[in-house]
Amino acid sequence: MSDIYGEILLDHYRLPRNKGRLEHPTLSVEGVNPLCGDELTLDLEFDGQRLKDIRFSGKGCAISVASASMLTEALKGKTVEEIERWIGVFREFIRTGRAPDGVELGDLLALEGISKLPVRVKCATLPWSALEEAISRYRG
């Protein structure tokens, strides 16, 4: 097994970015991992088309926590359109283990090995699925 528990992932697990709740979220969504029952909540605050702030809360494994932490870091300040593009990029990255040409994944690259761990894919995609629901709800 390629080692998913690398330093970048563990760093996001030990010191998660944007963890907690927002005081005035535009909307909140919950995700549940069917594998282990882990729950995750995303709070999003929009300023028009821009994601002004985002936080996540809940308990989870290192992979789901790190994935949520990386998600918030990558997407804070992005527009709804940009976020939708990122969701597509992330899904393809998780499926193939490779970033689409010309995309800089940053810390998310730490999840590279997940495509070879079909059982844990759900852990990594949990926050992204919640995000996808949030965006579709925001779009109405």
Binding site: M1, D3, I4, Y5, L35, C36, D38, K59, G60, C61, A62, I63, L117, R120, C123
Partner: peptide, 12 residues
């Protein structure tokens, strides 16, 4: 330690 992390780390 989440049980799934424990199981994955033991698997190494």
């Amino acid at each position: 330690v989440h049980p799934h992390d424990l199981a994955a780390l033991l698997d190494r």
